[in-house]
Amino acid sequence: MSPAVQIDDLSFAHPGSDLPALERISLLVPTGESVALLGPSGAGKTTLLALLDGRLRGWQGRTSVLGASLDPDRPPLRARRPDTGFVFQEFALVERSTVLRNVLNGRLGRMSPLRALMGSSTSHDLETALAALADCGIADLAERRVDSLSGGQRQRVAIARCLAQEPRLILADEPVSSLDPARAAEILTLLTGAARARGATAMFSSHQPDLARRFAQRIVGISGGRVVFDVPTSDLSEEATANLYRDTERMPGVGLRAVS
């Protein structure tokens, strides 16, 4: 079976920026694994995940996702996009729509264009959305408007939308950053559990090494756009983690980039 993600010598700079956000990254993620991305602010975690989601243009290197190589010059085929699900750092929900409508939006890429336009979901779409809501523990919120929800509830809606999409690769950008420790553990249990139950691969970025250890089988440390370590969770030393965050203090350039 081909790996879920295969990256070879990948470099990328954001448009208008001279400093690369990703520098010569190589990474292999086997199908079904849960991987955590650790790294200080501005390390390039969001950039890497967005690139794997097919949203960035103009990078160098070779990247393939779910067995298909990404093209640095054009977005992926629309038919492939539902296979990669993204949980956005800021949720990116439609505030005035209901929770159920937002979760059904995750299925738009799997509907016929006419159904997607009319918003007439099949019973299968509806069942999948309701199951995702139930998995996330928010079945009772289905008819609520998103703008009436708390941050933690929104987080669950964002994850439910991603699960309803039935992705084979789940990319989650700091899915627990705005939650208290108990909530954070719950959400990660949910996310990695759902991925495992569906045979999907999960990559999530985090600022909390202890949570990464608990929920990921492998941990990738990124700093200044480079991979600093890439190890099975059991092999990760306290020292490596500490160095990951200390390095940036010695590298003023990276700190500056994080601000700009």
Binding site: G54, F86, E95, N105, G106, G109, A116
Partner: peptide, 30 residues
Amino acid sequence: VSRAPIAALESAGAGPLARLRHAIWPQMAP
């Protein structure tokens, strides 16, 4: 209209008309 939900629907594979209908219109209509 906030851009983030539009990008999210595009990432999920929604076409331009579906994005207009489900991400742009609900924000604009009221």
